[in-house]
Design a protein around this nucleic acid. Sequence first.
DNA 1: CGGATTTTTGATCTGCTTCAAATGGCGTGG
DNA 2: CCACGCCATTTGAAGCAGATCAAAAATCCG
Lengths: 278, 278
Amino acid sequence: MSFASVESTAKHAVARQNNVKPVVIKSSDVAPVYKDPNSFSAPAKLLSASCESCALYSLCLPISVNKNAFGKLDTIIQRRKPVKQGSHLFRHGDAFHALYVVRTGCLKTYTISPDGQNQITGFYTPGEVLGLDGLNSSYHTNYAKTLENTSICKIPFTELEKLSREIPSLQRHLFGLMAREIEVDQKLIMLINNRSADQRIAAFLLNISDRFKNRRLSGSSFRLPMSRGDIANYLGLAVETVSRVFSKLQTRKILTAENKEVTILDLVALGNLSNNMQ
Amino acid sequence: MSFASVESTAKHAVARQNNVKPVVIKSSDVAPVYKDPNSFSAPAKLLSASCESCALYSLCLPISVNKNAFGKLDTIIQRRKPVKQGSHLFRHGDAFHALYVVRTGCLKTYTISPDGQNQITGFYTPGEVLGLDGLNSSYHTNYAKTLENTSICKIPFTELEKLSREIPSLQRHLFGLMAREIEVDQKLIMLINNRSADQRIAAFLLNISDRFKNRRLSGSSFRLPMSRGDIANYLGLAVETVSRVFSKLQTRKILTAENKEVTILDLVALGNLSNNMQ
DNA sequence: CGGATTTTTGATCTGCTTCAAATGGCGTGG
DNA sequence: CCACGCCATTTGAAGCAGATCAAAAATCCG
């Protein structure tokens, strides 16, 4: 029913590559995204009329804008669009016309290579901006799919671009967002090229933990939004390897993991394992 | 004498990671970069007073600027700074205040992790822009080191930023540059996570070939600017593996490689091998 | 020319993948 | 609310691509 989930086909999958199934978009999988009556509805009390009253304010885009100019930005942002779990916010090839800020929930972005291989390129949690791909060629190069019921703010790019010409700090903030995306990708390359499976997963968990902490949530006990398969794909490992490492970390009393609920018991040990990479 | 060259320490290097030497910056290695009398001097006839007369014009930044606004950009660009082979254009931690366009030669950018591991993050050939890291935190996160005697144009960012507010197409061009950088990184992640050594190297060679072609040079016969070790590090392989794949490709008559001179004999075969990834 | 570095080739080793199968969770429909 | 079936996760066993170790050969560069 949902989009064929990303399958990890890492290192020794060469033999399998010739019979990769072509990607078929099923009609039942068309993303509802906006205006879909089937979208889950968020509790009304969580709705906020303005960015200023948003809990994510300090993490989000408008922070770069002074009070005076803020009004303009405020008017162009479309708030709290609900997107059901497992549907697409945008797809490869979709026309690019907005950036998105996650408010609640989580998304993954991924690409599909000419021969049908999936590669997750990022996970996006509340306060984070996605959609920056597409800024090159006017259409998105990634797919963006929700991992949970998710709500997002949509910022039309034409307006944002215009506004960023009037507000230098906003322009700089946009540049900074993209530079950060580059940094994240480069760290991932470093991780994959130079680290063992244990280290990759330790670094990944610490990264997720930090992101929870930034949202003033517990960094030691949280629910992973993504499946083991997604983690495997992202880190360039086989699902089985990810599962085994999770098991090993548990027997070593470094963490507990019941399904997606993770509790880090020994942050120091986890940090040592990751070689302080994050 | 030169900076300790990047060593590839991939997959099974775990045991070795504890005795990695700390990175020591030797005084003899301080980059001359600008105003250094020891810099090699380019033939005077190659100097061009304006971007318009530059052979790379169509690849470079100013293409996004119309004739009228062009004059302003023209005045802020510092042209044809020579940088000697093996020296640094910038280093991790250096203050960020300019973007650089390669005119001749080649550079690599790389990062060093807390535990001393090197990771090449990109190669830059004529017409390509580097320095976009650093746009986030006002200092560079990467090192940039020349692989050959190289000349570059320097574009002070403060001025460029100001100008890009006046010229929408320039602003969009800058966004596009960064988005392209992201795309390149994501393709590399896909390559490393899902491809065999043969495929990675095939894709790499095709990519280099394309970049020569874009410069109106032969895409089938060229001189690789980087060492086998650099290729290995970039692609997450051991030097020995890279060497072996090069040998294999030669016995299969797909290419010839005498040291750094490469001639692609069978482009189709190489493309098939790479799974059309590039 | 001579030391240092890079590249190549061979032999061996191993971490992770692949294959296989059991178990557990979860959503759906009756 | 329970039974069913599907998918995700786990665990075991075996195989392999590529890493590591070793050493010769080629190239570079002062």
